[in-house]
Deep mutational scan, measured.
Amino acid sequence: MAEQVALSRTQVCGILREELFQGDAFHQSDTHIFIIMGASGDLAKKKIYPTIWWLFRDGLLPENTFIVGYARSRLTVADIRKQSEPFFKATPEEKLKLEDFFARNSYVAGQYDDAASYQRLNSHMNALHLGSQANRLFYLALPPTVYEAVTKNIHESCMSQIGWNRIIVEKPFGRDLQSSDRLSNHISSLFREDQIYRIDHYLGKEMVQNLMVLRFANRIFGPIWNRDNIACVILTFKEPFGTEGRGGYFDEFGIIRDVMQNHLLQMLCLVAMEKPASTNSDDVRDEKVKVLKCISEVQANNVVLGQYVGNPDGEGEATKGYLDDPTVPRGSTTATFAAVVLYVENERWDGVPFILRCGKALNERKAEVRLQFHDVAGDIFHQQCKRNELVIRVQPNEAVYTKMMTKKPGMFFNPEESELDLTYGNRYKNVKLPDAYERLILDVFCGSQMHFVRSDELREAWRIFTPLLHQIELEKPKPIPYIYGSRGPTEADELMKRVGFQYEGTYKWVNP
């Protein structure tokens, strides 16, 4: 592979701008107003304001973009700056750019259920340069409990009458099928589907988006991507930290609602779906819905739930269990780990287990898709061969690698495990991989909904998990304890083995 010439960040961002501006969906010269509902909250200060700053800094926003914060707290732009700027990672050389960014910011205080507050917000936006005809993007960085009041008031008082209007809704989209349907029906009564952007930030990850290209742009994968060759698929999300004093919020939802029903299920769809007619948003989402419709409700015998306990040999936070978090209700049975087996009941995947695993306070930070292939028929190497695996590593250190057998150097035919490896950090030294939120917010500006969740996708996802969630809430089974920093409950490994996964433990990928 030829040595790549190092590029400056300015040059890299210039390439990104060229890609972005050559499309006809990006209205570079139009006025846009980006409204952050819930501007005083954690999500706004840690993710949304920093993301908008990065896009502005790199010249990736339309030229005439204004940012308006809205929340109940009586704040000023200076207050917003004070709480969000520490997350910007701005350099001293960017000081003038930073001043320009905050000059485009404003803030309006108001209630979430008060019509007069929204009329005041609308008047404020109209007073901005060309504000009355601007395109408006409303980001709901809010708890779902206020979605209905907020969307109703936005629709009645704050819509642009000339430009387009788009609304970005953060997960969780309800707690179960019934609450999700209620919320979807409410929002759909106010906005068209092409105006609604239900954001799952995992769909903005580079390697998640790469799944489609790997599958449908490489001839070698087509013939082997089926039940005849693939023994099982494992989708993993692991965090090495616990709730760390923020367990009160987590306890309301648990690990299945927080990660599995959305992030992991979306990745499953991209692995299992048929080739779409095109890369058009609805063509892709149509195929994802077909996959979900082929999955039956989760069966309790295919589920393992766990909850982390303190590690007596650990240090600091590792010595504390979930129930030691003062914000967690006493005696909570909320799971911090889950392993679930699903089956896609169609011709391509009949009988292939899709194993979804996620948890907190585990032994490493990792998100990946792992396809394990069947054993080689007619073994001539005296059971020395391990199964081939194709691994798409989402985070950290984005990579695609194939675990395969090669001859060990020497005189004899002794096979050993090795890999074919594409590590993004080595291959793409001159490429700026956008943060997931950067990519998705740019998608909203461009009107691309491919990486957002459609209402029928959402409904099918909740259909699969709601009976299990209701059973857990009714019966309150005690989750299996696992030690902070471990791989999780051993019962999860036993479940995976029972459905056909072979864990060798003899080879570990190392970032080159």
Score class of each variant (00 low, 15 high):
residue 6 A to M: 15
residue 12 V to P: 14
residue 17 R to H: 15
residue 19 E to I: 15
residue 19 E to F: 12
residue 26 F to C: 02
residue 26 F to K: 11
residue 28 Q to H: 08
residue 30 D to I: 09
residue 31 T to I: 07
residue 32 H to L: 06
residue 38 G to A: 03
residue 39 A to V: 05
residue 39 A to P: 05
residue 43 L to M: 03
residue 44 A to P: 03
residue 44 A to I: 04
residue 45 K to E: 05
residue 45 K to F: 07
residue 49 Y to L: 13
residue 52 I to V: 15
residue 53 W to S: 03
residue 56 F to G: 02
residue 56 F to W: 07
residue 57 R to I: 07
residue 59 G to F: 06
residue 60 L to P: 01
residue 62 P to G: 10
residue 64 N to G: 05
residue 65 T to M: 09
residue 65 T to E: 03
residue 67 I to N: 00
residue 70 Y to S: 08
residue 72 R to T: 03
residue 73 S to Y: 04
residue 74 R to Q: 14
residue 74 R to M: 14
residue 75 L to T: 14
residue 80 I to H: 08
residue 81 R to C: 14
residue 82 K to N: 14
residue 84 S to T: 09
residue 85 E to G: 08
residue 86 P to M: 12
residue 91 T to R: 13
residue 98 L to P: 02
residue 99 E to T: 08
residue 103 A to N: 14
residue 119 Q to V: 12
residue 121 L to F: 06
residue 123 S to K: 15
residue 123 S to H: 15
residue 129 H to G: 13
residue 133 Q to N: 12
residue 135 N to I: 05
residue 135 N to M: 11
residue 137 L to G: 10
residue 139 Y to F: 11
residue 142 L to A: 06
residue 143 P to E: 01
residue 146 V to W: 03
residue 148 E to Y: 06
residue 151 T to S: 09
residue 152 K to H: 11
residue 153 N to A: 09
residue 157 S to P: 04
residue 158 C to P: 00
residue 164 W to C: 06
residue 166 R to D: 00
residue 166 R to K: 10
residue 169 V to C: 06
residue 170 E to H: 01
residue 171 K to Q: 02
residue 171 K to G: 00
residue 175 R to I: 13
residue 175 R to K: 12
residue 177 L to W: 07
residue 188 S to F: 09
residue 189 S to Y: 07
residue 190 L to E: 07
residue 192 R to H: 13
residue 192 R to L: 10
residue 197 Y to L: 03
residue 198 R to H: 05
residue 200 D to I: 02
residue 200 D to K: 01
residue 205 K to I: 00
residue 211 L to F: 06
residue 212 M to K: 02
residue 219 R to Q: 07
residue 219 R to L: 06
residue 221 F to Q: 04
residue 227 R to Y: 11
residue 227 R to C: 07
residue 229 N to K: 05
residue 231 A to W: 04
residue 233 V to I: 11
residue 240 P to K: 08
residue 241 F to N: 15
residue 245 G to A: 10
residue 247 G to S: 03
residue 248 G to W: 02
residue 250 F to P: 00
residue 251 D to T: 08
residue 251 D to Y: 00
residue 253 F to G: 01
residue 253 F to L: 01
residue 256 I to A: 09
